[in-house]
Structures are given as structure tokens and as C-alpha cells.
Design a protein around this nucleic acid. Sequence first.
DNA 1: TCTGGGGTCCTAGGACCC
DNA 2: TCTGGGGTCCTAGGACCC
Length: 349
Amino acid sequence: MGTTSARRWILHLDLDQFIAAVELLRHPELRGRPVVVGGSGDPTQPRTVAATATYEAREHGVHSGMPLRTALRRCPEAVFLPSDPPAYEAASARVMAVLRDFPVLVEVWGWDEAFLGATTDDPEALAAALQHAVRARTRLDCSIGIGDNKHQAKLASGFAKPAGIHRLTGDNWAETMNHRPTDALWGIGARTAKKLAALGLRTVAQLAAADPAELARHFGRTNGPWYRYLALGKGEAEVVTTPWIARGHSRETTFTYDLTDPAEVPRHITDLAERVTRDAADAGREIIRVSVKIRTTPFLTRTRQAKLPAPTTDPATVTRAALDLLGRHDLTRPIRLLGVAVEYTMPDP
DNA sequence: TCTGGGGTCCTAGGACCC
DNA sequence: TCTGGGGTCCTAGGACCC
């Protein structure tokens, strides 16, 4: 690349088809066949969606998020496997350990992603070495994006798939991104893209040239200007290596068939509240706020939440609060989903 | 395509207080 | 009291991401 002196780079590593890849390592005989992973692996079960699908399954129009029953219809010859989170957790930990053997800062970003901070005069060579080591020690492929910040590196790893390396910096941002729709940016989804389009802002270039004050009026004083910032290719550049401290935790269940007997609801809420409180205790955290979520037909979601008088780890206190909140919900419709969420007190910095 | 589960952050409106 | 204006907390919901 002609760069002669070392400078600081952000790399984004994204494991290719992570869940499917882990499953294929355990079931090598399925390589080359359409495989769909999700739920308990029973494609006749309603209200279960695919966590991932191999390229062979994608060729039949199957993709992650698709109901398994639809996937079965589109690809009857597919192999359906149950989701196995502990196995993915373990595989992820092995990959992160490989990364930490390099002279880089590592910020874990979910199971199959990490941001790396590195000072080097040849980021492509570093990326290739990382790919080689990950491949050698875990037999997993990854794509690596190189950027000046996390936003650029994240988009670059998308361009690098599969198993490639791509550099996206201020130098090639405009030529790479300007013509793309606004939801190509990391943080702008379908909803916001549609609202932006209604204002005549369809491309990244148009958003980059928009008036920040105008954006603030439509999207709020934080979000509006931030969207323009994203369109200019800017973003966070600090790699945080300290473990993430969760803000809260939740458990929810979608019932295979709607709950129609209101008498059953408190039992489920009690179960969920006790589980969430146990999880909090296991994590050594105190609960300060409780929230109860109900989704009814037709896919209408409502939440009720309340702050507790004092932080607690007591299951009975959390359950009582959840049942109180349940009493503030309308329970006349068939129930599709019940959930209990809690917010933790944050430790002093 | 009848639409999972687990997170994070932001916004708006009302209550409350001085 | 026919009143004002700001600050902060709380709650509900929206949007986004993996």
C-alpha cells in the first residue's frame, strides 16, 4: 500500500457463517448440503425461526430469521439442526483466545465478532496473519475489515466476505459509500431509512450533505446529527478491553400456541421472574427495576415497568413486583409471549 | 415469511419540585 | 391565585443490532 510508517488502525473480525460453521465441524458429513440451524431443530414447530442457514440452503431462498416451517417448504431436503448456544460460546472463546495472542487490543462484540486496535504499517499483513492463526487453531474462517474507526472497519468486514480482507478509510469512503442507500450504514435500519427517504435523503451522499439542525428536528438532537456523522464515515475509534458490564437482563417465552387461560399467566410470570433473579444473583448483580412484557395477537406488544424502592436480589420481591405489573396489563386477548426484564444497579466507576 | 431471544440507547410526555 | 419556568425523575415505546 506504500505506507511507510506505523499508525493506528481499527480492525473488525467477523467469523463467516459462524453457527453453521461450528455445526459443520461437528457434522462433517453435512458439508455441501443445505443445513438450517434453529430452535429445537424441528421444522414443523410453529413460531421458531432459523438462527442461520448454509450457502446451500440460501440458494433455496432460506435465510436467518425465517420461520423454520417456511424454510422446510422452500427447501424440503434441508437438514435441520437444533441451536446449541453453549457450543457456540465455547467456539467463540477459542477464537478470542487466538486474537489475544497477537499484539492487539481486543474488544469482544458478541459470539462471532471482535474489534481490534493495532499499530502497524501493514494492516493487511496483520489481518492475513490473524486469519491464518484463527483458521489453524479453530478451523473457522473469518473476514476482516480495516478502518480508521469501528464503523468503517465493521462495514469493511462485510465487503470482505467470505474469508477476505478489505480496507475502508477516509481515503476511499466517499467512492465506496456515497452511492449506497442510507441503511448500508451501521446504525441506520429500515425504519430510519424510510423516514430519511421521505425527506429526500436516499443515499449516503445526500445524508452527509444534509443540514444537522433539520435532522435534529426530525430525529432528535442526538440521533439526527449522529446519522449525518455516520454518513461522513465517522465513528467510535476506542477499543475497550475491559469486560462489558450488563445494564440489565431478561427472559421471555413465545408460546407455540397462544395462552388463552388467564389463570395460567401468573405461573409463567413467576417462573420468569425467578429465573431472571437467579441469573442476576449468579452474575452478582442487584435489581433496581422490573418490567413485564406481553405480546398478544395480533403481534401487539406492551410493557409495564416499575422501579423498586431499593435494590434487591430477593426472588420473592422481584416476583411480587412482576405480578403487580401483570395486574396493570390487559389480559383479555390470547397471549403469544410473556417476558420479565430487570435493570441492574450499576457499580461505581 | 404469521413474524425468536437477548440486548442497548434514545425520545417524549407527565409528575413533581423549587 | 387567574401565574412562569427550569430541572429531574419516571415510564412507555421505538429503533437498532447480533
